[in-house]
Amino acid sequence: MNLVGHLQCFVAVAEELHFGRAADRLGMAQPPLSQRIKRLERELGVRLFERSSRRVELTAPGRLLLEEAREILARVDRIHSLAERARRGELGALRAGVPADLTGAVVAALIAEFRARCPEVRLELREIGTSEQVRALAEGALDVGVLRHPCEVRDLGLGSMLGQPVGVLVPSGDPLAAAPEVHLADLAGRDLALFARDEAPGPYDELLAACRRHGYDPAAVHEARQPQFAVGLVLAGSAVALTPRTPDTPGVTWLPLVGEPLLLRVSCAWRRDTGHEHAVAEFTAAATGVLCEQAGMSPLPSAPPRRVVPRPASGFLA
């Protein structure tokens, strides 16, 4: 018998607990689906489902076999995707994503470090925002990424959390540029240039909330997909930019914020089942090292405890 095909039917029925819906999902009619389940039950010598006119339920052996069946199907999928990648000559390549705002020097150092650690694996590096990385990781289009937090990391493995203090970029002629550091509230009245929200909505919302909390509620936020666009807006006097320390550029000055109220958090993240565990671990070690040494990031020993004052409307099971 075609065991894989039958297991697909079993898993579909087990997940839908309804023969009609499972048949829809599989794109087949209900009678052949019922037959396949019966045949599988005969083959295995156990009943997988209790069926009555009202409901379909997994039996105890059915529940036990469901996990195994899922695992087999996942492995079969992997065989297909590995074969597909072999056909396209991609095997031996690690598909990695990094955010757009890394400097050229950091990207080059990351590639060099990975090559030194893992010479046998070709690195396919893509410049890609956090939201898109999360999607690509989930779809299997990416093996490992460098994500900004918070983001949706369910089902992903995570590397060390790194922190990067955010400062402000002002025109060198701005009176603020004379001070060694700036209070966020001193930025009041100026427009803000910031990375695009759709690239990393979690960090964007968190950063703007922190700005308002500290007395800076910008009237307009200009989203910059390229750091140079933000620099341009600052040079023109149209906005100030909140950004990690940038390479020195004539005409603009980067200043730290008093008390480091804004921190960008970054970590590597990977799918757990890529078959590239070794390469993923080497990439993570390389990226973590380079980001710390050359991009001004530092490991966060542990997240600072949050202070959460309970309110009834957001309390447990409200």
Binding site: V153, R154, R306
Partner: peptide, 16 residues
């Protein structure tokens, strides 16, 4: 207690 859980929710992996 849940207060402690809220306080530690930002730690990597806790939500997961």
């Amino acid at each position: 207690d849940l207060g402690e859980l809220w306080a530690r929710l930002g730690e990597p992996g806790v939500l997961q």
